[in-house]
Design a protein around this nucleic acid. Structure first.
Lengths: 333, 333
DNA sequence: CTGAAAGCGCTTACAG
DNA sequence: CTGAAAGCGCTTACAG
């Protein structure tokens, strides 16, 4: 059996109230009593039962972390950063990986609600439904990386429009006019934002947008590879590729190589994310870096602020993208 | 305010006992009563308070996941797999990333203990101390990927000795006799096991072990790169490198390239992990694959077995490694 | 500065 | 098949 507050109280010859006060560092406690109680706690190896605590204090000191894909290097970094900030503030993190599946996300949200978490950080799945909004009525939800249509809440985002525009403008500056864009599901706000940036840059250069160059694939190297092969087989193939993220860029690179083409001479490429492996790929990858860790820390802090009672209107934090030029795009001009 | 079991009982005109029975699917409930209660639960949006439940049932239905580095692709995959198995069984997962830091691990274990988790899956940090053993007395702990000296518990491991021996033997078969091994801290059981495999293969080929070729570095591409540069600058440099993991192999590859040497012609290389980027690196990487996901699933299932009351002696599951030959090692012979 | 009492929202025997 | 009562381990007013 676990040692309870009652056991400690009996052993120390005080009431459970006093033990509770010592454990919770209440100011009004006789220092002698306090020392005695602390010594007994040590000796008996007492640790407070969090469930009992939560039940009465109505604070679980637990936060939900719901992400679409923890195997994405950026997401993994964010998980680490968020967990660290939360732990330092005395909160534990419950993790759910939805794999972009709305049903899994619903399960995650329901379980978190049942566990009476104090708040939720959500990296929303492709298809997020009403359920998120329902739960957000009871518990603070901060969105990271993506927004959800028709759901007004705190958000922490990368400036995807700007990032994609920079990448596209860079390819244009390097002489490209037929720039393919490999994207994911448009239901994802990030996809729409980056697409907007891509189109913005093309328009600014007076290049007509060719819808056949914008191809949706799954978020994997294999899918991007297949899509690239199809695009290269066209009569008037693109001379440059922009990939929704670095994982997909890797697939483009493989397809270009397999087609016997040279990168960046024949085909240029820009990715998005700046994963740790980007400089070490077959051709060092030009890509758009996000301030993933800073975003994650800001997200955790924003949630903590809400948990501390901040009732201000929803905040929308936005972090700058940065173009990292390497070989795959043909370098700087 | 949240809807409580009392609210539902009042609304449905039954006692809270009956509501509890319906929620928990007790067999002895009148089907008419059950339907009525279920309808009220639906209408009021009632979800049971997990903390209250845990307090009396003495089961939190929560499990701790403590890992050293969630940004490692293999670990990320394992987290996903474990979370999925646990969620399907009705358990939530609390995550902690220790960054190889024993202090962070202690914090994690303490917090998990306070949260009265039902069990813990631990990927132990370099330096694990007594605290783990203390907590393991109260709650089932399953170790994944590594063991802890002097701590007898359930373990799920890759066959690292065999994997490292295969990799080394492969390099020997390709004609190499001076094979450098870049390792991490020997306090990690995995490091010791792989080192044993490396030495085993050398002995089997009657190659004398040269301690100067075994170099410890941090687990990062940069550190491995620096170590490689030093080794290559020696009078009688190695002709092949074996890296503790793929991230470090990436650093070796970069150093070899920067030195103006050709891989695999001048220098051969084998990594460990088979990360998703391995085939797409500058030189497609020969590496040792672990059955990471299968290990993760087995770990979660083993813990669930313990939570179901299995009191059998500690189990030790071991999964086979597999050598994946690509270009960096010079291909198959 | 400290203790007795109530109660958080449930489940678990125990009656009936 | 259903309800009244006790109690899980705490914290929170309320006295003193």
């Amino acid at each position: 059996m676990r040692v309870t507050i009652r056991d400690v109280a009996k052993q120390a010859g005080v009431s459970i109230n006093t033990v509770s006060r010592v454990v919770n560092n209440h100011p009004d406690t006789n220092s002698f009593t306090k020392a005695k109680v602390e010594q007994v706690i040590q000796a008996m190896g007492y640790t407070p039962n969090h469930n009992a605590r939560s039940l009465v204090s109505r604070q679980s000191r637990t936060v939900g972390l719901v992400v679409t894909d923890c195997t994405n290097p950026n997401t993994a970094q964010q998980i680490r950063a968020m967990q660290q900030v939360l732990t330092e503030a005395g909160y534990a993190a419950m993790i759910f990986d939805t794999q972009e599946d709305g049903k899994r996300q619903n399960t995650a949200m329901r379980v978190l609600d049942e566990h009476i978490v104090d708040g939720i950080i959500l990296h929303p799945a492709e298809m997020s439904d009403e359920q998120v909004k329902q739960i957000a009525k009871r518990v603070p939800v901060v969105l990271i990386n993506r927004t959800i249509d028709g759901f007004e809440s705190d958000t922490v985002l990368n400036d995807n429009v700007d990032g994609a525009a920079m990448a596209t403008a860079h390819l244009i500056a390097n002489g490209h006019r037929r720039i393919a864009y490999l994207i994911a599901n448009r239901a994802i706000s990030t996809v729409r934002d980056r697409l907007a940036g891509y189109e913005l840059a093309l328009k600014a250069a007076a290049i007509e947008i060719d819808d056949r160059l914008v191809v949706r694939t799954a978020i994997s190297a294999e899918a991007a590879m297949a899509a690239t092969q199809q695009l290269l087989a066209q009569p008037n193939p693109p001379t440059a590729f922009f990939a929704y993220n670095d994982l997909m860029a890797v697939g483009v690179m493989a397809a270009v190589h397999e087609a016997g083409l040279c990168m960046p001479k024949d085909i240029a490429l820009v990715g998005f994310d700046n994963i740790v492996y980007a400089p070490y790929l077959q051709v060092p990858l030009t890509t758009v870096a996000q301030q993933s860790q800073e975003m994650a820390k800001a997200t955790a802090k924003l949630l903590l602020q809400r948990l501390a009672g901040d009732k201000a209107p929803p905040q929308h934090l936005r972090f700058k993208s940065k173009l990292i030029v390497r070989q795959s795009s043909g370098g700087p001009q």
